[in-house]
Nucleic acid binder design. Structure first.
Lengths: 190, 190
DNA sequence: ATTATCTATAGATCTATAGATAATGC
DNA sequence: ATTATCTATAGATCTATAGATAATGC
């Protein structure tokens, strides 16, 4: 039974990390407070010394999922000779489709955001703008003017392909959906 | 208190219709059996004379949502001089974004399918194939060979745009996402 | 006689709180 | 003295069932 402030901070971080993983997989409503605390190695009664309510944890977990998405994007781009190809091949890959926990939070939790409170929708909007800005830079030639409309359409293609690929049962069909999105976005370089 | 066989059939249909509407809005897990029965004008105790379990109703409601999606598609195409434009302008419209109940079941319930049992995923796969076949026909020139890859990418663009447009809070940004998807798909005619 | 629907409830589960325990930190 | 965590539980809600009621249909 740890009690120091350091240990409380570590517990807090474990709770958020556990919630983020479980919610990326099952949605923000799926895991109970007891599930989350158990996944963090704690009992459920202690939860309310860390958060005023379950909803407060949802907000923290979604924000943490956005951070993880940005980190995954950074890793995908790191050292790539062709950053657009690197991003697209990471995003619309079978590996990303099968790895909900550390993948894109927009694709995993968008439905929850649409149903959720305006605070969640703001977090989503920021993340969508971030992806759109990245695609604007990656799609355009260094000299050419940025094409926001093309970047938004490419983002819809990638998010939609990941989303649909996760909803269909057949692996081959699912892989073809991802491949078609990769081809389509890569063919739209200006 | 109605008891005839005809009346039971009508009750059954009202239960499925109520479940379909509530699940399109909140996901397959959101409405309780009592919510659904109340929305159908019945009390919850009678439910199990119609379905063996709540899961059995989920399957019926998702199938019914697919039927409604097909009917909405048919209506959007009816009498259109430019069927591709008619489909795209219906699908990626603010009106469709704001009307979850009678809209595309793939965009509304895809996340649930990804988490759900293989039976649901088969229903989704069939519906995705149906949309892809339609887009193959609409995108190609009458003489040209069908381009399945292009059709799948266009479908991802449309589904993704509707999905993302529902997750962001700002109406103007949401509308721009839809407009970019319409433009992008319409510019890809062969 | 059968059965569609109703009221009532059993048993499970969920959020949040209360009070005990054991460590930290003034 | 304070507090992070634990055990226990109150109150709400959910799925599913039991038994009563009132209509259908042989």
């Amino acid at each position: 039974m740890g009690h120091s402030r350091d240990e409380k901070t570590r517990s807090h971080e474990r709770i958020v990390a556990a919630a983020t993983g479980l919610m990326m997989e099952g949605g923000t409503e799926a895991p109970s407070v007891a599930d989350i605390m158990s996944s963090a190695g704690l009992t459920h009664g202690g939860f309310y010394k860390h958060f005023a309510s379950r909803d407060e944890l949802v907000a923290a977990a979604v924000a943490s999922a956005m951070d993880a998405s940005n980190e995954a994007t950074r890793e995908a781009l790191e050292g790539a000779g062709d950053p657009l190809a690197a991003f697209v091949e990471w995003y619309a890959s079978p590996a990303h489709r099968d790895d909900l926990r550390s993948g894109c939070a927009v694709a995993a939790l968008g439905t929850d955001a649409g149903r959720g409170d305006p605070g969640l929708q703001e977090l989503f909007q920021d993340q969508v703008e971030r992806y759109a800005g990245l695609l604007e830079r990656l799609l355009g030639e260094p000299g050419a003017p940025a094409d926001r409309r093309a970047a938004l359409a490419a983002l819809s293609t990638l998010v939609g392909a990941l989303y649909v690929s996760r909803a269909v049962g057949d692996e081959a069909f699912s892989a073809e959906i991802l491949a078609s999105a990769r081809e389509s976005v890569l063919s739209r370089r200006s």
